[in-house]
């Protein structure tokens, strides 16, 4: 039995008919072709599939598409186009805080959520906030640096990176 749902994805209204078992991640990736949301473990451990659901980060692999009915979803594609994370993106680029890029979507989501809740986190708090984001390439330090630098810039400290 398929279910009809309607949700807002990156500001656009989307109507789809899905199986009840379809995850939000599969809806985004396979139906809507928003492939910036990645799947690394499909059990909520790795953080590669994080998206914003009504403004808060959720694992798109653990949320069913039907649960997102009537809600607002933002993916990395939407955040990118909105310009809301352009400073984070610039710092990640400047600090080389990504290598293969597979975790990056989730890192940006976690960072954005952290800085919304706690605009001036310590390095330990940043590391703690990334406790659900696995990165195999960087060793994390550059990511911590990029988030700390973004927090500084948002607080008016330091130079902005283009």
């Amino acid at each position: 039995m398929n279910i009809e749902i309607a949700l807002t994805v990156n500001g656009e209204t989307v109507r789809e008919t899905v199986e009840p078992r379809t995850s939000l991640a599969d809806l985004l990736r396979d139906r809507l072709r928003l492939t910036g949301t990645h799947l690394g473990c499909e059990m909520g451990s790795c953080g590669a599939c994080l998206v914003m659901l009504d403004g808060a980060p959720v694992h798109a692999c653990l949320v069913l598409a039907v649960q997102a009915d009537g809600q607002k979803v933002e993916t990395i594609e939407g955040l990118n186009e909105s310009g809301h994370v352009s400073d984070l993106q610039a710092q990640f680029h400047d600090r080389n805080a990504l290598q293969c890029g597979f975790c990056t979507n989730g890192m940006v989501m976690s960072a954005q959520a952290l800085l919304s809740d706690n605009p001036r986190p310590s390095r330990a708090e940043i590391r703690d906030a990334l406790s659900g984001n696995y990165c195999r390439c960087t060793g994390y330090e550059a990511i911590v640096d990029a988030i700390a630098a973004t927090a500084d810039r948002r607080a008016g400290i330091g130079e902005t990176v283009e």
Partner: peptide, 21 residues
Amino acid sequence: HRRGNALRHLAGRGRFVTDLA
């Protein structure tokens, strides 16, 4: 020098085999 290809990943425009249909 910064990595130009990193900008694609930051924009959600990576092109992995898992993304191909």
